[in-house]
Design a protein around this nucleic acid. Structure first.
Lengths: 219, 219
DNA sequence: CATATAATAATTGTATACAATTATTACGAT
DNA sequence: ATCGTAATAATTGTATACAATTATTATATG
């Protein structure tokens, strides 16, 4: 397990979440506190805390006095989440249009500029990082704690897929163009346009995945 | 604390969440594991598990090795959540239009019928229960695990306010009419209309709260 | 052989003990 | 008196011990 300075609970939580999302465990597989603790070299206590958190995330189902079971993430789940995100990223952009600062706008445009730079060199890691940064900036600019909270959750959720989809030159180019349109609308303070552009941006991600074939993406 | 057969962790979680949402604790107030455990007559273990869960819900902020602090729910938070819900309940109704069964539709209409009955008698408790039932039925009919998950979360979140707003004869009547419109659209399998009606239903709840004055609602 | 039931083991739930970290107090130097 | 620092206390983090519950096995009975 990673050797950073997070608590054991937090590390177990991250590890399990990542493994579940990566499909390491079969759906409905039982997660026994003892065995997981042994695998990760920790006691049951941090494992229990992690499992309780995963239950709230909906990745694990806990039956009292019985056990914790993996709730698999299906293709439909991911699709639904993108549909939900489409609406919420739209709302986020709308609110961002009303609140974004010049500084934030400049940062936003910088991520676009850098994306084009790294796209030419096919630096997929940096591109993914910049894409994350773009969206996180929008979340902050929305000035809504609640919206930021739910969107960050979903963002984590689909992180694994994003790695695949953003390693495609064609999609990166299209995605960057969509980011540009969002930024333009924000600069014009056109809330409705920003909303539509941001919403469509997520919808076109879905189309792209349809094109690539979800089955491969989900492995 | 309630004497049902849930685990201590679950009971502490519910109690703390309810207290935080009810404004029992001041914003940024520190929640010490020992004192909370003593108040509730349990050890630190279930308290810790509850606090970790509340952190994920965004109701508590945990600083490693320091402590857990209450994240207050502001008026703006609640407003934002209703805006978010407006979009998601719309999406939910759209999907429900595509998947709802005759049986579910019948149940939905029954809640409307019973609401009118209890409205006449001003049985606020039953009305709230029926309103909950109406929305939960929609969640199920959407056939989307993810949408159901997020909507149920928000539903819990604003539960306290709903008690107040649904104890107003005028609002109950209007709300029931809106439920009727949603059900009608579902019966016609008109997804777009169902979406619009459900979305507007939440928006009119916001208007109603504006009318009543949020300050009073939040106490 | 199939089934019911008692005995045993395994697992989760909770409390407590100890370790690590942070907060508070006491005390001395300037 | 103020600041810095050591000593002490309080709090969180983790592991372990014990209790309660559930699962498994063994055994008896028809």
């Amino acid at each position: 397990m990673s050797e950073d300075n997070y608590s054991l609970s937090a590390r177990v939580f991250k590890k399990l979440r990542s493994d579940i999302l990566a499909g390491t465990y079969a759906a409905n597989e039982e997660l026994k506190e003892k065995s997981i603790g042994q695998e990760l070299g920790v006691s049951r206590t941090p494992v229990r805390e992690a499992l309780r958190q995963l239950e709230l995330e909906g990745l694990v189902s806990i039956i009292p006095n019985k056990g914790a079971y993996v709730v698999g993430v299906t293709l439909k789940d991911v699709r639904d989440i993108y549909e939900i995100r489409s609406l919420l990223e739209g709302l986020c952009a709308k609110w961002a249009a009303e609140h974004i600062t010049g500084e934030q706008l400049a940062e936003l445009e910088e991520t676009i500029y850098l994306s084009e730079f790294h796209a030419a060199k096919e630096n997929w890691e940096q591109i993914l990082e910049l894409d994350n940064r773009f969206h996180e900036l929008l979340y902050e600019a929305s000035q809504s704690k609640e919206l930021m909270h739910v969107l960050k959750d979903y963002h984590q959720y689909v992180q694994r897929l994003r790695k695949t989809t953003l390693a495609d030159p064609g999609r990166v180019k299209a995605s960057t163009e969509e980011h540009k349109k969002i930024a333009e609308a924000l600069r014009r303070r056109d809330a409705a346009l920003a909303q539509a552009n941001a919403s469509n941006h997520i919808l076109s991600t879905i189309s792209n995945m349809d094109r690539l074939g979800w089955e491969n993406l989900m492995k």
